[in-house]
Computed example of a mutant assay.
Amino acid sequence: MDLTNFAYLTEEHIKTHTAIRAGETKIGQKISFGVLDQVSSKQFVILGIEESIGVKGNLGVAGTHTAWKGFLSKFLNVQHTHKLNAEQIHLLGTFNFNSLFESCKTIAEYRTATEKVDDQVYPLIQDLVEKGHVPIIIGGSHANAFPILKGCSLAFNEPVSAINLDAHADFRALEGRHSGNPFSYAYNQQYLNQYRIIGLHENYNSQSMLDHMDEARVEFISWEDIYLRKAVGFNEILDQYIQQTSQNHCGIELDLDSIENTLSSAMGPSGFTATEARQYAYHCGQHANAAYLHLCEASTQLENGQQSATIGKLLSYLVTDFVKGALEKTNI
């Protein structure tokens, strides 16, 4: 396994980001971290991906490499209580592809570099899943859905399904790897089984891609169908898609550009609320046959200078909501 660009978390990292306060116990004071013992019983393993390569390969604005550090400082300061304790969670470390990013100048180079990211990410995901863990992947572009699905599929020896809360289907043409085509590549290489998307924005998904999705039997509901036409309720369609994918291991994808006014390369003024995104994470943790959780496309700072002080806290909420749901798991 090539972990050239991976760094395990150390005690120094944890202490640096954990604020100790008398009378309180933070997750950072209790959580296990770094190299994961092969016989560890930890159910959830959190890792970061610091890269903006897939975004640039899709003609987007870089910044997704900044999400992991924003998340880490907020997550480690979550209160350790009977509602959420650290005994089932392990913080592994992070991939950092900034040097690879800096070596790229053209679209073609970014797309070639995305394949190099794929080749490092999928073996680690495969290894974690084979050992019985549920990976939670934070940061980076949506390009990483492909190696995550590949790793899970190889571990389970069968294609994996996926439910995606997203404004964009990311099912673009097979034109070289980038953040706009992880699911089309995964489908083409038979790592992806059923693909279900909630919240597509009708203004920003092309007819040619929708036609390709129809051929691949991808199902989706648009944001407009839920909120303008009121053809179906948010909870209703989520339950429907969870039921449809219940016979397979299912990846839980959450692209933060689906949340209104959330800093990302494709941020917008309309979309799901942060509360709805939290409900999605919790409900999928509780009811779906979840193989992993992938939170992507968020940025604490974009290359154009835009910044957000709340991204880390939002990511932390989404992780803890998913974990709480999974630990309270029931069947529909």
Score class of each variant (00 low, 15 high):
126 Q>D: 11
307 Q>H: 07
323 V>E: 10
272 F>R: 04
167 A>K: 12
149 L>K: 02
154 L>D: 11
90 H>P: 04
173 A>Q: 14
241 Y>F: 15
127 D>M: 04
278 R>D: 14
175 E>V: 10
124 L>A: 01
149 L>Y: 01
275 T>C: 06
314 L>A: 13
324 K>Q: 15
294 H>C: 09
203 N>K: 15
281 A>Q: 01
316 S>F: 02
270 S>V: 13
251 G>N: 13
71 F>H: 06
81 T>C: 03
176 G>R: 01
109 E>H: 11
217 R>Q: 11
262 T>Y: 00
51 E>L: 04
236 E>G: 07
13 H>I: 04
282 Y>K: 13
255 D>Q: 04
304 N>V: 05
228 L>G: 00
175 E>A: 09
313 K>G: 02
185 Y>H: 04
51 E>H: 07
163 I>W: 01
313 K>Y: 07
221 I>H: 05
189 Q>C: 01
235 N>H: 09
306 Q>S: 15
234 F>M: 09
105 K>V: 14
77 N>V: 01
251 G>C: 13
246 S>G: 03
74 K>R: 10
166 D>L: 06
150 K>Q: 14
107 I>N: 15
265 S>W: 00
69 K>P: 00
171 F>I: 02
19 A>W: 02
92 L>T: 03
283 H>V: 13
115 E>M: 13
186 A>H: 05
204 Y>C: 12
95 F>N: 12
125 I>L: 10
79 Q>G: 07
56 K>P: 13
298 A>P: 02
82 H>Y: 13
308 S>C: 04
270 S>E: 09
31 I>S: 11
60 G>D: 01
147 P>N: 07
51 E>P: 11
297 E>H: 08
37 D>L: 14
161 S>R: 05
226 I>E: 13
123 P>N: 14
97 F>V: 04
237 I>W: 04
176 G>E: 08
107 I>Q: 12
17 H>I: 00
251 G>P: 06
30 K>N: 10
